[in-house]
């Protein structure tokens, strides 16, 4: 097996990672780039804990090979905060009490970020649709939806 070098942008910085091609994007981010906010849940694309923003869209990084990230723009939770301070979505998750055990939270926040970047004023139904690929086994969905709506409102200058 020949190693490959993956050139991509991770959290706004260009990186070049020399890696075995039989690794997933999930493994590259966690093991090679030490971005441990990216969680491995089901490893089958079902739970959404490993969600990252890939060229602007949420994807499950357990379904992507590291080599497929060549040239991509990737955002993990580490790339969301501003100067080490929580951004509007993170703050809304805290304020709405949308975090229980926390394992699904990075994926939830990234999916919400991708949604709000495209649709700054989503309806509750649109939020539920957008978040339908992220599972929370503490079953705290009501507050998660509330948090995303709150973030949207604050980002638009309300509250």
């Amino acid at each position: 097996m020949n190693k490959i070098t993956v050139h991509c942008t991770v959290n706004h910085k260009p990186v070049a990672v020399e890696i075995d091609p039989n690794k997933r994007l999930l493994d590259m981010l966690r093991e090679d780039l030490n971005l441990t906010s990216v969680k491995e849940g089901c490893s089958e694309g079902e739970c959404g804990a490993c969600t990252v923003i890939f060229n602007g869209e949420p994807v499950t990084s357990c379904c992507v090979l590291a080599g497929q990230a060549e040239g991509a723009d990737i955002i993990t939770l580490e790339g969301v905060s501003v100067d080490g301070k929580p951004d509007v979505v993170q703050q809304a998750f805290m304020d709405a009490g949308a975090v229980q055990c926390g394992f699904c939270t990075p994926g939830m926040i990234l999916t919400a970020e991708a949604l709000l970047a495209k649709n700054p004023a989503p309806t509750e139904e649109e939020v539920k649709q957008a978040m339908s690929g992220n599972l929370c086994r503490c079953t705290g969905y009501a507050k998660i939806v509330e948090a995303v709506l709150l973030a949207a409102e604050r980002a638009r200058g309300g509250v």
Partner: peptide
């Protein structure tokens, strides 16, 4: 199909 993440891929 699947979920938003799966449809994106």
């Amino acid at each position: 199909v699947g979920s938003p993440q799966i449809r994106n891929l």
